[in-house]
Design a protein around this nucleic acid. Structure first.
Lengths: 327, 327
DNA sequence: AAAATAATTGCAAGCGTTATCAAAAAAAGG
DNA sequence: CCTTTTTTTGATAACGCTTGCAATTATTTT
């Protein structure tokens, strides 16, 4: 039937406690035996019994990810990247698409060692009874009740403006969600203004409210952009989807990208590369974000730091084919 | 610390094996003691230790759901509905967004009792070593290697045509993905043709290829629809997203729904109700789909049927405000 | 080469449950 | 009132694993 530690022990000709230690890479067992055990284990197709492990060690090496809503593709991509990042570790991840409350119940049932949450999800703080949590994104400006990972949004937008400015653009419009209380969206526009000032083109500041973050929101924002005077030569799209909509709308009007219009998108996900026009974008690459989140939660579990902190990751500019010199 | 069965035993003044039986509602313990034990357990806030339970009973009461890609909202809604449906049962669900191969690994690690998969995911058949699987949707026409749940698509489309036909529509256009090998999409158009024939309006058969299943695909199909002669009075949208795009495009052209154009959408998800125009739709309601999937996998686990079968669920027509009599 | 020290290995005690079966208590029968 | 039968309870052995600690073996020291 199922291969246990004892079966491995028998074949490897050592005691089963040695097998256990070998499998856990304990320094108390000789390298040679460790190798032998590992080889036998593999041959027999040994798989550790999680329940037994958990029962004695009180740890599960399982981390729960609360993902209450099927949201924008950026988050979806982040989730898959996080899931991937765990493959390099002894931990596994389970996902709950329930409300935070029921997710917490499930996670307690599984006795997960740690939890990853997104700012969007509004966690029931009380129910965490000393189980480590890492949060992605901030709830409100300045609020850091948990260890929090976030991108340096200000820097990201500055990177976008800088890039366009170097290419000779002055009339750079920011197309994003403006009329909102979402701190992230607010920070992005404000950063845009700041950056325009920094490069002394604040007289060209020009913002278009997309009213949302989706494809159609970008698509419909193009009308407004093209009606302005002077017509901008470059656009900063506030999200992956917004930029996608903008590109399509421009193409339909036969305005060529990047010859007649440059566009830089916020968000840095692999999908940017495979868009109709490979997109120049700014943001923390989603795989880095994922790696950081994963290593943070593991550190937290293994070192049990207590404080809430915030870590702002440095974004990068990825230049592709949607931007060019302004002639 | 954590309250165990032994703590309960001590307080209730019985042996801990009696407590175990009482908690599992065994007929071998007296009603009176059962009540007493349950009361004490509650008072002490006893929570059963899943790991210990698993270790001895060999069952985890956990079911894995393979969801490799973040796909159309219909699937996302189905996933959350399935997750909800499990709440009525002793089982819990874990989700893997990995490739089917790695998902299987994770599931093996957790020793899930069963697996739910979507036809889209192309499972590695070999790796299932007698763990029950339920599949949603069919891979290819007629292929049922697993117990499979699916909607009766033919019936659904017929329902749509019937509804429109009763309202006096003849020029009913089907807007969906036509140029594809996806058996589901093919079945839908063919069902459309069949239904049109059934109601003797096959001379009005009119299909528009959306080239995809997304919002923008629907949006752009409207041009083609409006260029035809005669202009149809009703549209069957091939998916939730397609229909959404169609509605928006019609509204932009100030063609009022349902006065000037009726539209029935394929897919029956709650979001249909909250669209810009509450949408008349056909399909198996997702919550029913979810319930059926959940009860099937549980039956399979508990009764261990061996055969592959396919269960076609009966779709329903949900009439809302996107359809009206043709005048 | 013997003694001391260090590096490995093995033993055995749990972890919190369930499940089997023997023991005890209660009920029934003679 | 003592057997016999039935109902109820309680020991106890797994389940597969980790983990101190004791036992063994290998390596230094003297």
């Amino acid at each position: 039937m199922t291969v246990t530690i004892k079966d491995v022990a028998k074949v490897a000709n050592v005691s089963y406690s040695t097998v256990s230690k070998a499998l856990n890479n304990s320094p108390l067992v000789k390298e040679a035996t460790k190798k032998k055990v590992l080889k036998v284990a593999k041959e027999l197709g040994y798989e550790p019994n999680l329940a037994a492990k958990q029962l004695v060690s009180k740890r599960t090496e399982v981390i729960g990810l609360v993902w209450p809503t099927i949201e924008r593709i950026v988050l979806a991509t982040l989730v898959t990247n996080i899931s991937n990042a765990f493959k390099q570790t002894p931990y596994s991840m389970i996902l709950s698409v329930d409300t935070p409350e029921t997710a917490m119940e499930t996670f307690r049932k599984f006795s997960v060692d740690g939890i990853i949450a997104f700012a969007e999800s509004d966690l029931p703080l009380e129910s965490f009874a000393n189980i480590p949590v890492v949060n992605y994104g901030v709830y409100k400006q300045g609020d850091v009740s948990y260890p929090t990972i976030d991108a340096n949004h200000e820097k990201a937008i500055e990177l976008a403006v800088d890039h366009l400015h170097r290419q000779g653009h002055k009339h750079i419009v920011y197309a994003g969600l403006l009329d909102t209380t979402d701190p992230l969206q607010i920070e992005k526009v404000e950063s845009y203004r700041k950056a325009m000032k920094k490069f002394s083109i604040e007289n060209c500041i020009h913002e278009v409210d997309t009213k949302g973050l989706d494809w159609q929101d970008g698509y419909h924002a193009v009308d407004k952009i093209l009606q302005s005077d002077p017509i901008p030569t470059a656009i900063i799209g506030g999200s992956y989807d917004i930029s996608g909509g903008i590109v399509r709308a421009l193409q339909e009007r036969e305005i060529s990208i990047p010859e007649e219009m440059s566009i830089v998108s916020y968000d840095n996900i692999p999908q940017m590369e495979t868009m109709e026009v490979p997109m120049t974008c700014v943001g923390v690459p989603v795989n880095e974000l994922a790696k950081e989140i994963v290593s943070s939660i593991i550190d937290l579990i293994e070192e049990k730091e207590e404080d809430a902190w915030i870590k702002k990751l440095t974004p990068v500019l990825t230049v592709r084919e949607s931007t060019a010199f302004n002639k």
